[in-house]
């Protein structure tokens, strides 16, 4: 305590990411109800409210919530169709699931005192590995051994093709890493930065500046939350195209 008093700041930017059991106790088993459960549950409830309650009237002329739901539907549907082509449309529900979960988790995480589930590497790694394994398995099921042709760049001169193949293989296996770390890192960084800057507010002179800075970064984080959900989804579509569209690229 003494050294913290001396430095003047008590900033714990990472405390907001601690997983805590909701109903007491210290041990976190795989089934324990934690704040992760709470905020994922809130996300599910919010998605259900938007997509089920909002559209329950099935109006030809949509209400406000219904048109938001339709907008999301059309947005993702167009993205899947444009990026993966016509064959990819049957994976649309899965892509939509990913997008909605990430978008709602990111946005809910921006509420003060909330917990951002997508800032945890555990969550994003699972999301990314599901995409990675799904795409790999799908690629081999659809194209057989020809899926490996993806690594053999036929448009390059023959001499450098092996080198390119090595690079392609490495970049293929780095995909889930960057896919997951990007999302978690962005969210974590943004929230930690807000927390760090907010911590400077203990210095009375700086507090007006801090309020402005936190507001600005909050706006940026709002943008980042949407853009990262979009990026994760569109990268999923891009990876899916490799499997569905064959090795012609």
């Amino acid at each position: 305590m003494a050294e913290e008093g001396a430095s003047g700041f008590q900033i714990h930017p990472m405390d907001q990411f601690i997983v805590k059991p909701l109903f007491g106790g210290d041990h976190i088993a795989w089934y324990t109800v934690t704040n992760v459960t709470l905020w994922m549950g809130i996300a599910v409830v919010a998605i259900a409210a938007l997509l089920m309650l909002g559209t329950r009237r099935r109006a030809i002329v949509p209400s406000r919530s219904q048109s938001v739901a339709e907008l999301l539907y059309g947005f993702i549907h167009n993205m899947v169709e444009e990026v993966t082509g016509h064959d990819g449309v049957k994976y649309f529900p899965y892509v939509m699931t990913l997008f909605l979960f990430i978008l709602f988790s990111n946005l809910l995480g921006l509420l003060p005192m909330s917990f951002t589930t997508t800032s945890h590497v555990a969550v994003t790694v699972v999301l990314a590995m599901m995409v990675f394994l799904g795409v790999t398995i799908l690629g081999f099921v659809k194209n057989g051994i020809g899926f490996l042709g993806m690594f053999w760049v036929t448009s390059a001169p023959l001499a450098i093709r092996p080198i390119l193949a090595v690079i392609e293989v490495i970049s293929y296996f780095v995909r889930p890493v960057s896919h997951s770390i990007r999302l978690a890192g962005n969210l974590m960084a943004g929230h930690a930065v807000i927390k760090v800057i907010a911590g400077f507010a203990t210095l009375a002179v700086a507090s007006p500046v801090v309020i402005g800075a936190v507001t600005a970064i909050y706006a940026l984080e709002l943008l980042v939350a949407c853009v990262q959900a979009y990026v994760f989804t569109i990268l999923t579509c891009v990876y899916l195209r490799d499997a569905v569209g064959g090795a012609h690229h």
């Binding site: 993205m79 770390i181 890192g185 962005n186 960084a189 979009y230 990026v231």
Partner: peptide, 19 residues
Amino acid sequence: ANLFVGIAFAEALGIFSFL
């Protein structure tokens, strides 16, 4: 779409160093 994908790829490497 290409813009965002490109930005995401470029940004991922920065995120790695942040990590």
